[in-house]
Design a binder for these strands. Structure first.
Lengths: 343, 343
DNA sequence: TAATTTACATTAATCGATTACAGAATTTAA
DNA sequence: TTAAATTCTGTAATCGATTAATGTAAATTA
């Protein structure tokens, strides 16, 4: 590997001049510049990045991203948003997947945090479901700015980018009511302490209350966000159907909604003719299901982009102080085929 | 930010000793070591990574990954495989998404390559659909080892990790035949010069020939790999149904298969009762469709892992020479619900 | 022609670590 | 007690760039 000295020698100039040709060409005479360039070419010289950043003190910034499972359907959109913003600002992303250990989730989060710290990231975008309060201190001690994505910090001291889950769930109920539904079941999301699931649950309850709808315990069922959970949950809901007579179901995630649809169909009923289902997320696959899913659309791309944007601001102007608390982005209810209008 | 000199001064030793305490503790007297450690603690000192790698010449290795579209359904699995292997070897990944420009694909690939080169990656894992021969020279000039993933290089001089597409497509036909199908349509994948689509097409044709099945031009239809393409293609296939009387369709990607299913259902027919459909990929969603998709399962995780493993070998022992040509991994035909046994 | 500018180029310090080599301190052997 | 061996620590070169300070040659002005 050729270094700057080699180039300098070959071109018959000093290393300073070579450096200038590369970084400040106007300050070098054309003739000299040409000689240097040809030396660079013939030696196939590329400046050593490490030496460059050590000397210029302008190390390239990299932001760490912690995500529990890359295979989550919305991950790609979220990441695209982050990635786009990062690229525009010449910032690298170090993606760290939190291993889906059955146990040891806590251990792993702290590990991830430390791993990223060691990798010298300037900030961390955290999309974990589980942030126990015990971590608060440790996080503060890290000394690296954090931004939460899609989930919020209980204490609220860490800025978070997401949609207003409570409101969106409420809107879902309102929508179902507007289509004539009164008896509504819910497949709620349980997620290791992650509060989004809970917020959606609360919003749902508020809707029920607001519209004065009936609600028996048999109408409430829980799952862990995934397809299989939705399927199982729906089985339970159906087993009480004769009693609850629900005409619609609010599923707290699209994946569960899709599982629920499958379950309904397996049991010989039809969606939406016999049971309407509304989801939450608007995954790309929710447009491919039969029937197509009516759902709350989360702006994953924007959430990713905005959270990264905010992170960059924090990094570049640390004194400015990060705006903590929730940053809500706009969501939409997308009408498709899985909710029937009752007459 | 404290540096090693500060620590040295505070502990009353030389920088060399501080460095030794950190990197070679046995060589330092306990008492000294303790003093240094406490100085490190009280100054909250962390070694500067850049300086460290410049001086030790042990820069951390990073491998670039070029992928056309992160939102592709199988991306996550592929990436997990790569990521796992990389992490075990203490290697970083720099993920670079090729912007899905309608035009300018060529430009972008070269850009991506150069961008990664500038970022000092030691190797590039390339999963692009489009590698014109014109690039051969430019790639050679790059001077960075390349490994192809999921697609192969025409000239064959770049190692590639994938499954044997031709064989797998042949097997699909064989399977359909074993279920009593004789009149089979194909939704073939067109992909800017990417040869996987073509190989599957060839394999299909070989199967048709081998089993001596009828094949009219109306049984062959093309799409660009995605859901919508599958839908459109199936529309075309159905419009000739009265003539071709096909009982089964081989779709070159799961996404297209799923689009095709939707199309069949929209047209009032049923899968697999009226038309059987077999896919290709085995995406996670192919297990969620109604009916569940019978398909060729590609080992995305392993492909990712093996390609990264090979890359690492090349990087660590450049003299050994990379084994060019195709490295085929094992695939499987997964039977589910979308193919009916004709009696 | 001498003095003053202007335009480039060079020298050498610097970034923050590691490490070969040499020297000091301590332990062991004689 | 002294020489030899061993253990520990310090000095200074080094990694490969950037850049402030400085020098020199050419161009301009008086």
């Amino acid at each position: 590997m050729a270094k700057i000295q080699d180039v300098a020698k070959l071109a018959g100039v000093s290393t300073a001049t070579v450096s200038r040709v590369l970084n400040n060409p106007e300050s070098v005479k054309n003739e000299t510049s040409r000689r240097v360039m040809s030396a660079i070419k013939s030696l196939d010289y590329t400046p050593n990045r490490v030496a460059k950043s050590l000397s210029s003190k302008a190390q390239d910034i990299t932001v760490g991203v912690i995500f529990p499972d890359i295979a989550t359907f919305y991950f790609a959109e979220l990441y695209k948003g982050m990635s786009r913003e990062a690229r525009e600002n010449n910032i690298n992303i170090l993606l760290h997947e939190l291993e889906e250990g059955a146990n040891a989730r806590e251990e792993t989060l702290m590990n991830a945090l430390h791993f990223l710290k060691k990798s010298n990231v300037s900030g961390i975008l955290l999309s974990s479901r589980y942030i126990p309060k015990e971590y608060d201190q440790a996080i503060k001690r890290l000394g690296i700015p954090l931004v939460m994505v899609l989930s919020s910090h209980e204490a609220g001291s860490i800025p978070a980018f997401k949609i207003d889950d409570k409101r969106a769930a409420f809107d879902s109920v309102a929508y179902l009511v507007s289509r004539g539904h009164q008896r509504i079941g819910i497949i709620s999301a349980i997620t290791n302490n992650h509060n989004s699931g809970e917020l959606r649950h609360q919003g749902f309850l508020q809707g029920i209350q607001y519209y004065n709808l009936p609600l028996s315990p048999e109408q409430i069922v829980y799952g862990k966000m995934r397809y299989d959970d939705g399927y199982k949950a729906m089985t339970e809901l159906l087993s009480n159907h004769h009693k609850t007579k629900i005409t619609a179901v609010f599923a707290a995630t699209d994946e569960m909604a899709i599982g629920a649809i499958r379950c309904v169909i397996d049991s010989g009923l039809k969606v939406p003719e016999d049971i309407s289902i509304i989801g939450y997320d608007n995954l790309s696959i929710s447009d491919m299901t039969i029937p197509k899913l009516t759902t709350i659309s989360q702006p994953f791309y924007e959430i990713g982009k905005e959270s990264m944007k905010h992170m960059i601001e924090i990094i570049k102007e640390p004194d400015k102080g990060q705006k903590s608390g929730n940053h809500f982005l706009a969501y939409q209810l997308v009408e498709r085929e899985s909710v029937k209008e009752l007459t």
